[in-house]
Design a protein around this nucleic acid. Sequence first.
DNA 1: TCTTGCTCCTGTAGTTACTACAGGACCTAT
DNA 2: ATAGGTCCTGTAGTAACTACAGGAGCAAGA
Lengths: 148, 148
Amino acid sequence: MAITSTRAAGHSIGQAAALSGVNAETIRYFERIGLIPRAGRMSNGRRTFGPEHLRRLAFIRQARELGFAQSDVRQLLGLADGAPGSCAKVKVIVDANMQAIRGKIARLRRLEEVLKAVSASCANGTRPDCPVIEALMHDAPAALSRGA
Amino acid sequence: MAITSTRAAGHSIGQAAALSGVNAETIRYFERIGLIPRAGRMSNGRRTFGPEHLRRLAFIRQARELGFAQSDVRQLLGLADGAPGSCAKVKVIVDANMQAIRGKIARLRRLEEVLKAVSASCANGTRPDCPVIEALMHDAPAALSRGA
DNA sequence: TCTTGCTCCTGTAGTTACTACAGGACCTAT
DNA sequence: ATAGGTCCTGTAGTAACTACAGGAGCAAGA
């Protein structure tokens, strides 16, 4: 849209990256896939980013760090942009992600137990036959059979 | 190597998939990238899998389920194949993965806390302005700043 | 003025670990 | 003969970026 002069009003992509914590190449990628609107260009073709862009980038980064999938982020942005009173939908997405995270935690805790046992069986690591390899070769770790 | 007759000695890829729990297409992929040795072929070109292949596939599946990266699996298989007395190296890999898993668990627990707070702030989800969106837009969740 | 170095541009390919499909061959049974 | 199932190879798609190639602009120092 707005094509500004070379003396920029907004931030360069490098500045936007530093300010938002999103890698510059990733910002271009987000623009390409439409996760953020197309940034303004200066007369030399370089992007300028205003505060609204920075807020959006920060939002995306936070959401991604919280483990939201890109599709979730897209939905949340859509809800944030348009649809008033869509807070309930937002809560659904957040709660679904919280459930997923709790599931992951439970699963990882089981994995930790298995690995701890396996590492302990290795003891000092001086035995000629490796019990770890043997264990992985033959057993289905009981802790994993449930709820893969 | 061994080209068998049509009446097979070993298992078909479908059977191998069922027995090992590894998808048939994934088995072909593993063969292609050299994670398993090239399976024998029957006179009609179809693969046959013997018990050694099945053990290897089971091993890979277990290790992947335990969160080992493919590169780790490859190393472990190498250690299992050759190098006697390499149990110590195996232990190193296992322990590194255990550390990684513990880190993931800690991180996910922090995420859970943030999401729980965020979801609670949403309460009944009937407010016109969504505090979740606002929170993600503006705040850097303190729990995440450390140890990303 | 030239040169060095930085940032930026577009477009494409690589990454991880698979999964899915296209298009064809073969096998088994009715 | 024909229908359905399994298998083959090879390629392309997935998520979510990251990295690179090849080029252009810009600012500052010698």
